[in-house]
Each structure stands twice: as structure tokens, then as C-alpha cells.
Computed example of a mutant assay.
Amino acid sequence: MRRRAVAVTLAVVAVVAAGVYAKAATLDEQRRDLVTQVIEVTTQADEAEARAVHLAGMIALADDESAELESVLEVRPEFLAELEALSSAFAEAEGKVDVADERTAAVSTQQTVLAEREEPGVVVAATATIRALRTEVDEEVAGWERVQAASSAAPGPKWAAGGQDAYARVRAALDRVGGGGVGLYESSSCAGGSAPACANSNGYIKFRADIATWSDGRLNWAMAHELAHIHQFRVWGSLNASAAYQSLFGGDPEFLANCMALVRGYAGSVGCDGDQQAWASGIWVGAVR
């Protein structure tokens, strides 16, 4: 009887133990599921926070970019105004002076502005470049117009004793050395007829008929020399006030004209050293040092 009771007790204990084990296993599985869920929720929360931070950063970046673009757009109207003025200057220069280099520079500058989205200073600098190009073109056109006015004002017929062929040859030489548009006519009045050619401060050149028979080299030099005087007259005041001019050339415009012709590739009978040539080259572009 006792044995049966013990057996029953053991069976009950086994059943209870099995139940406890099964319940423990279930709780353990639930615990693992709960931990997994917590991890998932935490991960999702972290990802959501990261997305929020990224989104906030993108919004801030967009705000910054918008502000930068706005500052660039604020300075563009002045650039466009200068570009329009340069376009008008190009139209005015048509058929008068070559503005190919200025056009190339303007296109490059415009492309820089079109690509700029952040720095207003880039647009401001580009505006200054366009303004400088316009000033340069305006000055070149004004110079051309002065030459035309001087040419129209040159007294006397273009040719006399030498005839049309003589004039055409001298004219071609003057054009060849850079004097296109400079007034030219035949006259025997240069130094009472003793000088073969001379330049007038009003911007034109006179020549004696016989120089039309000179060799090409000598005729080119003569026209380069006289053209040099035209450029000297344009800076006459500052030229004669220059200590370097007095020191290097003794204040002699003829010597300076020879050196100016030499640096253009037309050598005369009088040589110039390197310092004299370097200084003389500036007069061609209106620079007196």
C-alpha cells in the first residue's frame, strides 16, 4: 500500500515537475521574444532618430544653400547691366577695332557667373572684369575715332607729284607697321623739304614723293619711325617730364622714335641697348615710366 502511495506521489511529482519545466520553457521563450522585440524597438527608435537628425541636417543645408544662392542672385543684376553695356560697346566697335580677345574674355567670365551658386564675391569680381573690358573697348573705339578725325583734318591732297601709285606704296607701308587709319598725304614741306617724312601732333603723317622709291625695309622703317612720333605726341607732357626719358635718350624724340621702331622689328641706322628698347616699348601703349 505504501509502495503504491509512493508511486502515486512520484507520478504526481513527475507531472508537476513536467508542468513546471514546460512553464519555465515557455516563460524563457517569451522572455527571449520580449528581448528581441525590445531590441527591434530600440533599433527602430535609433534609426528613426538618425533619420530625424539626417533630415534636420538636410533642411539646414538646404537653408544654407538657399541663403547662399539668394546672396549670389542679389549681385547678378549689376553684372547683367555691365554685360549689356559691353554688348553695346561691341556693337559700336563693329568695323572699327578688333575686339575678338575681349569677346573671348567676356564669354569666359559669363560662364563663370552662370556656374556660381555660393560665392557672391565671384560675381562681384566678374562684374569688375566686364566693366574693365567695356572701358577698354570704349577707349579703343575712341582712339580709332580720333585717328579718323585727324585723317579727315589732314590738309592737302593725298598725293601730288608722286602720283597715286606712290601714295599707295607709302600707305601700304604705314598700314603694315601698325598705322592703319592714321592720316597720310604727300608734301614737300617737312623741314623745308629736307626731311623725307614727318609726323604732325594733330595725328597725321606727311611724306616726300621720292620715298616711294625706297626699298621695302627702309620705307617700313621710315613709317614706323613717324608712327612712333604720333604715339609720342599722345603722351607728350608726361614724356618730357620723365627723368628716365632724359637719362636714357637725352630728351631726344628722334632717338626715341628709332628705338620704338626697332622694338616693332624695323631697325634704322641707330642702335639701342636693351634698357632703351624696354623703355621705348612702353610708349607704344601709352606707358611712360
Rank of each mutant, 00 (worst) to 15 (best):
S188M: 12
S188Q: 12
S189D: 12
S189C: 09
C190M: 03
C190N: 04
A191K: 11
G193D: 11
G193T: 07
S194W: 07
A195C: 11
P196C: 05
A197I: 05
A199S: 11
N200W: 03
N200T: 06
S201D: 13
S201T: 10
S201P: 07
S201F: 07
G203C: 04
G203Q: 04
G203K: 03
Y204I: 02
I205Q: 02
K206N: 08
K206Y: 13
F207T: 00
R208V: 06
A209Q: 11
D210Y: 09
A212V: 02
A212Y: 06
A212F: 03
T213M: 03
T213A: 13
W214Q: 04
W214H: 03
W214G: 01
S215H: 06
D216F: 08
G217E: 15
G217H: 06
R218K: 13
L219H: 03
L219F: 02
N220Y: 13
N220H: 12
N220P: 01
N220M: 12
W221P: 02
A222F: 06
A222W: 04
A224Q: 03
A224T: 04
H225A: 07
L227A: 05
L227M: 05
A228W: 04
A228E: 06
H229W: 00
H229Y: 01
H229I: 00
H229S: 01
H229Q: 02
I230C: 02
H231A: 13
H231E: 14
Q232I: 01
Q232D: 01
R234F: 01
W236A: 15
W236S: 14
G237F: 00
S238P: 05
L239F: 02
N240L: 08
N240H: 13
A241D: 15
A241G: 15
A241R: 12
A241K: 05
S242N: 10
S242L: 08
S242E: 09
A243N: 14
A243L: 11
A244R: 14
A244D: 14
Y245R: 03
Y245L: 02
S247E: 15
S247W: 12
S247I: 10
L248I: 08
F249V: 06
G250I: 09
G250V: 12
G250T: 11
G251H: 10
G251L: 10
P253T: 12
L256G: 09
L256K: 07
A257C: 06
N258R: 12
C259E: 10
C259R: 08
M260E: 11
A261Y: 06
L262I: 10
V263S: 09
R264W: 08
R264D: 10
R264A: 14
R264C: 08
Y266P: 04
A267L: 04
S269H: 09
S269N: 14
S269Q: 14
V270S: 13
V270G: 05
V270W: 13
G271D: 15
C272H: 09
D273T: 12
D273Q: 12
D273K: 11
G274M: 11
D275V: 14
Q276L: 12
Q277L: 14
Q277K: 15
Q277A: 15
Q277C: 10
A278G: 11
A278K: 08
W279R: 04
A280C: 10
S281G: 09
S281D: 13
